[in-house]
Design a protein around this nucleic acid. Structure first.
Length: 368
DNA sequence: ACACGACCTTCCGC
DNA sequence: AGCGGAAGGTCGT
């Protein structure tokens, strides 16, 4: 039984938001259906033009972390039913109405109290390039992730590509995370807490699992947190200003300016943080700051200038805007866009059939 | 402050 | 077919 609540696609597009490299934990189980772990449970998500549908598997195995819910609106059952009746469904059984807690978990994770449409309008007004690009990429929003998962996932991301990062994150969960439940023969695990990652033998184990030099970063960072702080320290950074938060994070082994900005933006409520990676560097040089073309490398100074430029252009939610352009620049989405156009224009029945299990990587093995 | 090179491993393109 | 280079960087010189 699917449960649902109202949410227009322009406010949230699952396919891009869940697969653009913010989180590495979501898989497309069936076309349009995304499965992943959130708040200690397995969630299956899908959507149509004006609603999000979901199912959950497994009981909550831990209390949700404290949420800052200030200003987050409640979705009442009354207007849920109203929305459904608009679609020709008079009412829905009590069982299928999602609970307030479930809805709140999703609204918090997707930050649905922030109006993305308004933000897109504002960014488009001040930036023609954004306006052009964003027309084909609506509904891309920042997730509000768990900071522990976010931090350790992005320590894995250095000098690495998304498919391998996903694989490493998965191994981290399977090896050190609590098991939640089996779904269709596949075992889902929570992301591990900091403590098990701080054991002395973890570096060696992770090397054996193919983490390379990042094995040490993960183990060292976990040890550092357990020694100088505690499990909840990362969450407490949500109420600290951006710059101070970034400085704190950069004390961790394997966390430089870019990873620190990712964590600030994606789990610590710093919407102004702009992570500058090779893609953003290219985008900035090509479309915004031509002088960057002469630079030999991305120095600390230039890194700061790029972030400042985008904050000046896009404002307080610059990090959110950056992720729209970043996603539009990802190869996989460029290809999807062009194949969509192709499908619209000329070919019928040429759409690629996804027969792969959702367990296999989403990379394209050309079947020639 | 800035520029290099090393670093693990996988994947993609030629 | 097999190899070179890059991959959402960071660290040490």
């Amino acid at each position: 039984m699917w449960k649902s609540f109202v949410c227009p696609r322009s406010e949230l597009k699952l396919s891009t938001t869940l697969a653009c490299g913010q989180s590495f934990r979501w898989r497309e189980k069936n076309p349009g259906e995304w499965i992943g772990v959130l708040a200690g449970r397995v969630w299956l998500l899908s959507q149509d033009d004006d609603q999000i549908y979901f199912k959950t598997f497994g009981n909550s195995i831990r209390q949700d972390k404290p949420l800052s819910n200030v200003g987050r609106k409640r979705q009442t059952k009354a207007n849920l039913n109203t929305a459904l009746s608009d679609k020709g469904v008079s009412s829905i059984p009590e069982d299928n109405v999602c609970t307030a807690a479930e809805k709140e978990t999703l609204r918090d994770y997707f930050q649905l109290s922030v109006s993305l449409v308004e933000l897109y309008n504002s960014w488009s007004k001040s930036d023609l390039n954004f306006h052009q690009t964003a027309r084909n990429f609506d509904g891309i929003r920042m997730l509000r992730q768990d900071p522990v998962e976010n931090l350790f996932s992005f320590i894995c991301s250095s000098n690495n590509h998304i498919s391998r990062i996903s694989q490493m994150v998965e191994r981290l969960c399977q090896t050190y995370g609590d098991k939640i439940i089996d779904v269709d023969g596949y075992s889902f695990h929570a992301f591990p807490s900091v403590k098990p990652l701080a054991s002395d033998d973890v570096e060696q184990e992770l090397r054996a699992l193919g983490f390379g030099y990042r094995a040490k970063y993960i183990n060292q960072t976990a040890k550092h947190i357990m020694q100088y702080h505690d499990e909840n320290w990362l969450y407490s950074l949500r109420s600290l200003p951006y710059k101070e938060t970034k400085t704190e994070l950069m004390k961790l082994c394997g966390v430089g300016a870019k990873v620190a900005d990712c964590v600030c933006l994606m789990s610590l409520d710093k919407a102004e943080a702009v992570p500058v990676d090779t893609h953003v560097w290219q985008i900035a040089a090509r479309d915004y700051m031509p002088k960057l073309k002469q630079a030999k490398s991305l120095t600390d100074k230039l890194y700061g200038e790029i972030g400042d430029h985008f904050r000046g252009l896009w404002g307080d939610y610059a990090g959110w805007a950056h992720s729209v352009l970043f996603t539009a620049d990802l190869k996989q989405f460029k290809e999807e866009k062009s194949s969509e156009k192709l499908t619209e224009k000329k070919c019928q029945g040429k759409r690629k059939v996804e027969s792969d299990s959702f367990l296999t990587r989403k990379g394209k093995k050309k079947v020639k």
